[in-house]
């Protein structure tokens, strides 16, 4: 058994993965891309799966309510609109929460992770332009008094953006 199918056997928010029904699994795995750009996309999916539009909508609402899906919608390519960078800082432990809270409050920050490393705070900044990005980097350094390491993307090597949840053969 590979790692992904093993992961499926563990709990999701307290319930077992095996409790996901086939419609839920199919929506999660097979509709990560190509949501129809038609007037009635959910009815189109329902037709493909042999269920009703109401069942598709109720299932998606339920998955979203339980945070098993983040959303249904477009996923934007970084760098195509505006610009972004991965930034990192060495934050003393006692200041980590306050610095993290400050960063999370900035609208330009959309991912913020604490990591097990002496460079312990890692976040992605997105901005409308290089000048805007630089201004945000400067503002963070100034407001925290901590140096910010900026690691922009030079090339993207990953082309398939869906993530196979390996349920098809179950």
């Amino acid at each position: 058994m590979n790692t992904k199918s093993m992961a499926m056997l563990t709990s999701i928010n307290g319930s077992d993965h095996s409790q996901l029904n086939s419609l839920q699994k199919s929506l999660l795995n097979d509709f990560q891309k190509d949501l129809p750009l038609s007037p009635t996309p959910y009815a189109d999916i329902a037709m493909q799966l042999g269920v009703t539009e109401a069942e598709v909508l109720e299932t998606l609402q339920e998955l979203q309510k339980h945070q098993i899906i983040g959303r249904v919608g477009p996923v934007f390519q970084p760098h195509r609109i505006g610009t972004s960078t991965l930034a990192a800082m060495i934050v003393p432990k006692e200041r980590l929460q306050s610095v993290a809270d400050y960063l999370s409050s900035l609208p330009e920050i959309n991912h913020n992770y604490e990591r097990e490393h002496h460079i312990n705070l890692w976040f992605v900044i997105t901005a409308t332009s290089e000048a805007h990005l630089q201004a945000v980097l400067n503002e963070i350094a100034q407001n925290t008094g901590i140096k910010v390491m900026s690691l922009p993307i030079l090339e993207n090597y990953h082309l398939d953006f869906s993530f196979d949840l390996k349920w098809r053969n179950e």
Partner: peptide, 16 residues
Amino acid sequence: GIIRRIGVVPNHYALG
């Protein structure tokens, strides 16, 4: 390519 896909965005953390 501004949008890379349109669809269901699973929460991998919640999925284990």
